[in-house]
Design a protein around this nucleic acid. Structure first.
Lengths: 339, 339
DNA sequence: AAAGGGGATGACAACGATGTCAACCCAATA
DNA sequence: TATTGGGTTGACATCGTTGTCATCCCCTTT
C-alpha cells in the first residue's frame, strides 16, 4: 500500500492540509514544519495520488494527440510533442481516429466527455472530418491543429507556408532551366494541396512559363500515387524534365518509378518533394525537398494550446511559418534538348 | 458544468447507487428503473467522471509506452498498440526515456509512483538501461518488453526469433551462390545483435563456408553505420558479394553507399536487411529483408500485459515468434567470378 | 495595555464516483 | 398465516486530494 497524505501528516505530526501546502510549495508554512514534512515524505516515499488531485481540481493534466495513422510525419510530430510536453505538467495520450470507424468516434467522444483530456493536438488528416470538428466545437475542448489539410479562420492551427514553399521550389527548378515541370498533386479538396499547387502555378506565371493542366497529376500524396503518376508522366509525348512531388512520399514513389524505367536522376529528370521527411535524405540520390518545419510548428502549437489551457489568449491563433528549401542530389539542370 | 451522477439520480428519481449500477451494467436493477435511468442519462448527456472512478478503484486505466525516440520501428509498434488498445479499456500514454537524462528518469519514476499508469510496454532500446530495470522491478509495476535488446529470464518479453531469422537469410544468400557475405553488426553487447550474428554464423557453418571475422562490420544498426561499414567493405581486397544488414536502417545505408560507388544492386552486390521496416519496400531496388513480425509481437505483448493486469498468470512470459523472409529486388546471384 | 494585523495551522467540506450492507418488497413455500 | 428467500434499492462510508475559512498566536502599533 503506497503512503497517502494522511500517513505523512501523522508522521510529521501536523494536519494533511499542511502537508498539502508543502507538496504544492504554497506559502504559510514555517521553515521548521516544512523540513519536518519533507523528511516524513522521504521516509515514507510518499507521492501524491494523481487521480485524487485530478478529481478535486477538475483537470486531467493530459493532452491528447489525435492521429489517423502512425506514419512518418506523425512520428516526427509525436517526437517533438513529447519533447515539449516535458516542459509542462501534462502527460501525453495518443488516440487514433478513423472517420469511417464508428467505434473510434465513440471512443474519442467518450474521452472528451469524460474529461480525460484537457486539450487536443490534431494531426492531419484528422482535421478534414466534419464529425470530428463538430464534436470538438460542441464540447468546447481547447485544441490546435498541426498542419491542417483544411483550415478555417475560427480554428487554431499552426502550419507551414505551403504556397510559399511550393513557389520557392518551382522557382528553383525554373532557375535550373526546367520548364516542363510535372506536379504530383494531392487530394483536390484539401487546402494544403491547393496552396501547394498555387505556389507552383504562381512561380510558372512569374517566369512566363505556360501552365499545362496535364502536367498536374493526381497522386494523393502517397508512394503509390507518386509512382503511378510518374509512370504516366513519363509515357507522355513530351515527358517532363522535372517532377515536383507535392509530398515527399509521392516524390519517393516517383524516384522508384524512374529507377524502374532506367531514367537517371537528376541527369535526365529532376525530382523534388515537399515535407522533408526523415527518409528523404536516405534515398539515392538524396531528395531535394521543401522543409515543412515540423519542430517549429509543434513548438508553436503547444505554446498556443498551453496558453488557451492556462486561460490566456494566445498571441495569435493562426500561425503560418515559412518553409525553406533543402536541396539534395535529386535536382539538377535538365538535359540539353535536341531540336 | 457537466452532469454528475447525482444529477442523473435526481432526474431519474432514484439513488446514485442505482445509476452507478446502470452505468456499469450491474445486475439487480429492475427493467423499468434501468430505462428511466437510461433516459435521464441521455437527457443530461451524462458521462462518468474518470478521475473519480480511478480514485475509488485505485486504477489508472492507462498503460504507458516507453520510447527512446519516435523512430520508424517505434511508430509501427505504436500503431499496433493503439489498435489493440481499443479492445481493452486502457488509454495509451506515451513517455520518452533517455538514460542519460535525469529529468526523464524523474518523470518516469513519478509516473509510476503516482500510479498514473497501470502497466508499461517497453520498446527498444529503453530496456538496456539498468536504472530503468531496477525502477520497474522495485516499484512492482507490471510491464512487458517488446523486442528487447537484452533479455533475462525473469522479465516478460515478446520478440522475434533473431537467430532463426538471420540463419534463414544467410542460408538464402548462400543458396543464391554467395560466400563472401559481409554482416553489418549492431552493438556488441546487445543480445539482439548477438543472436542475429550467431544466426549468420550458424548458416555459414552449416554450409561449410569459412567465417571471416573481418566481414563482420560495426554498424550500430543505423543508416550512417551501414553506410560507413559498406564503404569500408567495398574497399577491401576481396569485397563481399553480399551485404547482410543486421537491421534495415543499416541496409538502407548500404544501398546508399553502393549507389554512390556506382555498384549495381543486386547485379554486382546483393543487399538485405532485417526488420522489414515500412520504408524498406520503397527503396530501389526493394530491400530483401527478414520480417520481424511487429504486429504479432505487439499483439502477444499486450495480451501478456493484460493478463498480468487482470491478475491471471499469462500462458507464458517469454515469447519468441518466428521470423520470415521477405525477398525483394535487392538480392540475386553473385556475378560470375573471373579466375 | 489594548487593539490590530498577519502568518501558521487545522477542521471540515468538497470533488464524483464505487463498495458495503442493511432494509425493503413481494412471491413462493411450509 | 408465518416464514423464507431472492431480487431491488438506497444510506452511508470511502478513495486521497485541495479549497474555504475559522482559529490561534505572536508581534507591532497606538
Amino acid at each position: 500500500m503506497p503512503a497517502t497524505i494522511k500517513d505523512v501528516a501523522k508522521l510529521a505530526d501536523c494536519s494533511i492540509k499542511t502537508v498539502s501546502r508543502v507538496v504544492n510549495q504554497e506559502p504559510h508554512v514555517a521553515e521548521a514544519t516544512r523540513e519536518k514534512v519533507q523528511s516524513a515524505i522521504e521516509t515514507l516515499g510518499y507521492a501524491p495520488n494523481f487521480s485524487a488531485r485530478r478529481l478535486v481540481q477538475r483537470k486531467a493534466y493530459m493532452i491528447c494527440v489525435l492521429l489517423h495513422e502512425a506514419g512518418f510525419y506523425q512520428s516526427a510530430v509525436l517526437s517533438k510533442v513529447l519533447d515539449v510536453g516535458y516542459q509542462h505538467d501534462y502527460d501525453i495520450l495518443i488516440q487514433t481516429y478513423f472517420p469511417s470507424h464508428n467505434r473510434s468516434k465513440e471512443k474519442l467522444a467518450a474521452l472528451i466527455r469524460e474529461k480525460r483530456v484537457d486539450g487536443l493536438v490534431i494531426t492531419p488528416p484528422c482535421d478534414v472530418d466534419r464529425y470530428l470538428t463538430e464534436l470538438l466545437v460542441k464540447s468546447q475542448v481547447p485544441y490546435v491543429q498541426i498542419t491542417p489539410l483544411n483550415r478555417t479562420a475560427e480554428v487554431p492551427y499552426v502550419t507551414g507556408d505551403d504556397y510559399q514553399g511550393a513557389y520557392l521550389m518551382a522557382e528553383r527548378l525554373i532557375m535550373l532551366g526546367h520548364w516542363r515541370i510535372a506536379f504530383l498533386n494531392g487530394p483536390r479538396n484539401h487546402r494544403m494541396s491547393i496552396d501547394r499547387l498555387y505556389g507552383y502555378k504562381a512561380a510558372l506565371e512569374m517566369y512566363r512559363i505556360p501552365f499545362r493542366e496535364r502536367l498536374v497529376m493526381e497522386s494523393l500524396y502517397n508512394f503509390d500515387g507518386g509512382y503511378n503518376a510518374t509512370r504516366m508522366a513519363m509515357a507522355m509525348d513530351e515527358p517532363p524534365t522535372a517532377i515536383f512531388g507535392g509530398s515527399d512520399s509521392a516524390a519517393i514513389g516517383a524516384l522508384y518509378a524512374l529507377r524502374e524505367l532506367g531514367v537517371s536522376v537528376p541527369k535526365q529528370v529532376s525530382v523534388c518533394g515537399f515535407d522533408n521527411l526523415p527518409q528523404s535524405q536516405q534515398t539515392w540520390p538524396g531528395l531535394s525537398t521543401v522543409d515543412h518545419p515540423v519542430e517549429a510548428i509543434v513548438d508553436k502549437a503547444i505554446e498556443i494550446l498551453m496558453a488557451i489551457l492556462a486561460g490566456h489568449e494566445p498571441d495569435s491563433r493562426q500561425v503560418v511559418l515559412p518553409c525553406r528549401l533543402v536541396m539534395r542530389g535529386s535536382t539538377g539542370a535538365p538535359p540539353v534538348e535536341m531540336t
